[in-house]
Design a protein around this nucleic acid. Sequence first.
DNA 1: TATTGTTATACTCTATAACTATA
DNA 2: TATAGTTATAGAGTATAACAATA
Lengths: 160, 160
Amino acid sequence: MTTPQRLDADLGWVLARVTRAHLRTVQDVVSGLPGGPRGYQVLAAAIDGEVSSQLAIARMLGVDRTVLTYLIDELERARLVERRPDPADRRARRVVLTDAGRERLGDLDRRLRGAEERLLAPLEPAERDTLRELLRRLATEAGPGNTSPCAEEIAATEGC
Amino acid sequence: MTTPQRLDADLGWVLARVTRAHLRTVQDVVSGLPGGPRGYQVLAAAIDGEVSSQLAIARMLGVDRTVLTYLIDELERARLVERRPDPADRRARRVVLTDAGRERLGDLDRRLRGAEERLLAPLEPAERDTLRELLRRLATEAGPGNTSPCAEEIAATEGC
DNA sequence: TATTGTTATACTCTATAACTATA
DNA sequence: TATAGTTATAGAGTATAACAATA
């Protein structure tokens, strides 16, 4: 047995290993995309227009809003998104995907799901679905990934 | 619906959210322990003596061996581990837990498993077991967490 | 008075490279 | 010639604080 019982019972260890393996697997898919995997997540968050302010996207991604400034700068330079003034709140910017951004996101979606299936190859098809569903429920119900707590009212409106 | 379909279908997003939530949950348990969650993982890897060289521990944890130097320095200062010469290879050091280290590990194990159950609270008991098992299999079968590929021969002997 | 976005800065984590000692 | 461990250093990623514009 190459893996001691104690260590593989640790969620922190298995999560770190799987996250690293995931990162390696999707690396070539997101290479060239500003921000890598995170750049994809910004596009995916903004595509529907429901989560479009930089702050809302930051909360969805579990990072500080200052991270989004640089990241969206790069995505804008790559002509994948545009910052537009929010008519309802002139402090906020709406992050809107360009046509190229929508195309790129579709391509990324397809290739990322493929790469992920390769990562999940050790599991049976039904097990892969189960794992995805359990992780999804945890991710959406276990609260924000941010260090600063996200109030319930904000959570309801901002997607935390 | 607060979470767009596309984003919560992304394994990278759910893994990042769950990992962050896990980190927040165990924070108070590992506060004061050198290296935090990673310090625990070193103790857990070294306890049985099968994975005792710094290099083997580094591979098990998916980090570069240089990370282990500082981390084990701290654990040694805290009297939780000792570096002992490996009689079979005088280049290598065997990382051995002290009595205090074994006690601390036992305490950490108990409290971490409790904290993790709180994290998994949104899931049914059977679902928690399923998630742990699927993640464990992925973590042990999906290859090393390290960026530098771990050769098969090494994997067999070093627990990659 | 609070919030969105920006900028500058500092901190943490990690890897790379060069070195010593062993194999 | 290759490997285990150490040290110094650099890079990526992130947060904190201060600021301007707006609510």
